[in-house]
Amino acid sequence: MDFAFFLIQLLNGLQYGLLLFLVASGLTLIFGIMGIINLAHGSFYMVGAYLAWSLSAMTGSLTAAILLAIPLTVILGMGLERLLFRHLYQRDHLYQVLLTYGLILVFEELRSMIWGDDVHGVAVPELLNASIPLTDNLSYPVYRLAISGVCLLLAAALYFLIQKTRLGMMIRAGASNRDMVQSLGIDIKLIYTLVFALGIALAAFAGMINSPLSSVFPNMGSQVLIICFVVVVIGGIGSVKGAMAASLMIGLAETFGQVLVPEVAGTIVYVLMAIVLVWRPEGLFGKG
């Protein structure tokens, strides 16, 4: 493996990892703060991708499609939280699993009814449709770099939101002590709605920006979901920092695995998870 090839795989792995982080951070926040296991989280990734595809077909621009789709997914998230998830906070995880599993089936069928079962490609925005040459016959697409950049910006914003703002403080307090927050007169219900909508929007946004690379196809959500479960398990439930570390780890492991040992690439991430479980059952950054 020469250096340019290695560099390309490294950038791909980081980009994939950063994308996983967007989905997994929402998942881990919803787990950590609301105590909800949301199997349908991957469905929002799919919804984002399909919205990006259909809206960009309508408007002719992926950027416009994304700008239109973000508020839609936020509204969807808030609506579902009020309608469904709110009834699950005090319930056993078993019922959360069941309800969100049912929700996946509903999303998949609605997707099939609205958008059909075909695979669709999404065009890369004109402005970013270029490549940086690395050697005579190897180059790196600008769009992938742009995705990584956006993901990093969002990660920084998320860090700032959680560590430095009043809302973030409430979110952190809510994670550790629900009653205390309520007794301070803070509207915990509103915080839950916001956190849920934020998580959903992050997953959907990941689906949108990745749609030109992955194209859009049925059941695209479940693949991402299960990898993100692994990310959350490795990183530690509720830890955004852990989600970042684990996402990059998984992203690199899977990318290099596919290049070096393609037959077992699909299983590498699970082997990683098994190792972490033996070593630190509560995850790398989990509370012991």
Binding site: Q96, L98, V106
Partner: peptide
């Protein structure tokens, strides 16, 4: 699209028939 009905049924069981 029978899975749509199935999905709704599963959700109803989770909510109302624990």
């Amino acid at each position: 699209h029978w899975q749509l009905a199935l999905g709704i049924f599963i959700m109803l069981v989770a909510l109302y028939l624990p």
